[in-house]
Every structure is written in C-alpha cells, then in structure tokens.
C-alpha cells in the first residue's frame, strides 16, 4: 500500500504538468481551431529562459530570485507566443487560409524553436535552483516531495484562475464566443486580433511555466518538448477537447495511469511513453469527445 500512496502523489504531480500542457494546447485551440504542436518547444524554451535569468549558467550577469525570475520568464514567453502568432499565423489568416495551414506553419516553428533552444541552451540538461527540495515528506498515508506538492499547488491555482476567467468574466465569455462563432463574435464588437494574440501569448506562458517547473526538478533540456507535446495533447483528448476542466482531469488521469501501469503491470519500463499514445488512440477511437462532453459549438 505504501507504494500505491507514493505513486498517487508522484503520478498526480506528473499529471499536473500534462494538464498544463493540455491547457496550453486548449488556449489556442478554443478561439482559433488551430492545434499548435509547437507548445512542447515553448516548455523547452521556458526552461532554458529560467536557467538564463535565474542562474549564472547561460547569462552570467543575470541571476534573479525565483519569483521575479519566474515573472520575467513568463513575460518573455508571452512575447514569444505573440511573435509566433504574428509571424506564422497572421499572414495565413489574413489571406483566408484554413486552420490546417496555420498548423503546418506552426510545425515549421516547432523545428525552428527546437534548433534555437539547442543552440542557446546547448544539449546538456541545465538546472535551476528549485524553490523546494526533494526530501521525503509524509502526510497521512501519502508521501511525496515538497517540490511535487509545489507543482500540484501551482497547477491547481492556474486552472482555477483560467476557469474563473472563462466562466465568470465578460472577457472570458468573449473568448468563448469567438471559439463558437468567430464571425458573429466579431460583429458583436469582439476584437478577433486581440483575442487571437492573447490566446497565443497565454498558451506560451502556460507551457513556459511547465518548462520553469521542470527546470527545477529534472533540468532544462533541449529534448523535453516532444514527450510533453504528446502527453499534453493526450490529456486534452482524454478529458474532453475544448474544456478547461477536461484538460485538468485528463492530465491527472494520464499521470496516475502512467505511474500505476509502470508499477503494477508486467510491461517493460521503457514503454512508459507508450502509455499516453495507447490511451490517446483508445480515446480517439472509442470516445473521441473525451470524458467530459463538449458543450455545443463546432
């Protein structure tokens, strides 16, 4: 039983990272219909950016404490997200291209970001100082590390804030209106440009946050993006495409499932990353709308 309760905590913490990646997908997908597979590279760059501004490793003169450093990284990520939209998406949309054209150009962005990351950060895993350590902490039957609890707490706060924004504010409703019917929303005075740029910027911020969290646990690493992309997309499909609460549910379930499968099923541990792919396929075939049904829209 000890193993089980330890797994719950570590699976939940991993799952939170998948949820955030799913949210990063979702923020762009809802208003624009574009699936941006470059979000994993945002996470990679966010990690390196954290190393750059919080430690002396990449840019020696700059070493900010955690909170100001985090804010600087997130601001940089917002700029990156907006720039990506401006360079790779806007020109296509302006010419009336369908979302799939943007998805293809964003695949090009993926390659570019990967190269930029490898050039800037190198190919070694680089660390940031985690705000909390990895010593075992026990609470009731559960056991985890302060850092895993920090990850869980940050994730829950982010999801609560995003959910409140979408469900409880006029601006959030405007985003939702755009996702339901771009043309009608525009005719109601909703600025599509502002919504689209905000969507891309916030998506990059959320993925960049994942990168910062990971830089403190396992290090910023140039190859971290692909796995996170698969895991985040799976979280989204499992939970229900198009729903904020679905991304959280899907990511956490995936994290727990991965951990439990690895521990208790007689499969090779090298298959860990196959778990999300199998789950993804199963859901796409058997329950394409995910666990939580989509609420109307297209």
């Amino acid at each position: 039983m000890q193993d089980f309760f330890e797994l719950i905590v570590s699976g939940f913490a991993s799952g939170c990272l998948y949820s955030l990646m799913g949210l990063s997908f979702l923020l762009v997908m809802r208003p624009t219909g574009v699936v941006n597979f470059a979000v994993g590279q945002y996470a990679m760059l966010g990690g390196f950016a954290a190393v750059a501004v919080m430690t002396t490793i990449l840019i020696p003169p700059i070493a900010l404490p955690y909170v100001p450093g985090l804010l600087v990284v997130l601001a940089l990520m917002a700029l990156l997200g907006a720039a990506v939209e401006w360079i790779a998406v806007k020109p296509l949309v302006d010419r009336g291209a369908p979302p799939v054209a943007s998805m293809l150009s964003l695949l090009g962005v993926l390659i570019v970001l990967l190269e930029v990351g490898a050039r800037f950060g190198g190919t070694e895993a680089l660390p940031t100082e985690p705000p909390f350590g990895f010593r075992r902490v026990e609470f009731g039957p559960f056991a985890g590390t302060p850092q895993s609890l920090f990850t869980i707490a940050v994730t829950l706060v982010i999801f609560a804030a995003v959910w409140l924004f979408f469900e409880r504010t006029l601006w959030g409703r405007a985003f939702e209106a755009v996702s339901l019917d771009r043309r009608a929303a525009q005719l109601m005075g909703v600025n599509l440009r502002l919504v689209t740029v905000s969507a891309f910027a916030s998506s990059a911020v959320v993925a960049g946050l994942v990168g910062v969290l990971i830089s403190g646990t396992t290090g910023a690493y140039y190859q971290v993006g692909m796995a996170l992309t698969v895991q985040g997309f799976t979280a989204l499909v499992v939970g229900g495409v198009g729903r904020v609460d679905g991304a959280l549910l899907g990511g956490v379930l995936l994290g727990l499932l991965e951990a439990l499968v690895m521990r208790y099923l007689p499969v090779s541990s090298s298959m860990t990353l196959a778990v999300p792919l199998v789950v993804l396929l199963a859901f796409l075939v058997l329950r394409p709308h995910g666990l939580l049904a989509n609420r109307g829209g297209h």
Partner: peptide, 19 residues
C-alpha cells in the same frame, strides 16, 4: 529498470527496485 527519456518521474521504476 529503464527510465525512458522524456518521462517526468522515476518513482514507479525505483519502487520496483526497492521491492
């Protein structure tokens, strides 16, 4: 045990080792 590149935790693998 193998810890696949890209995974976020090695807890399941190390639990098996511990067991």
């Amino acid at each position: 045990q193998l810890i696949p590149v890209g995974s976020q935790t090695a807890v399941p693998q190390l639990q098996k080792v511990r067991a």
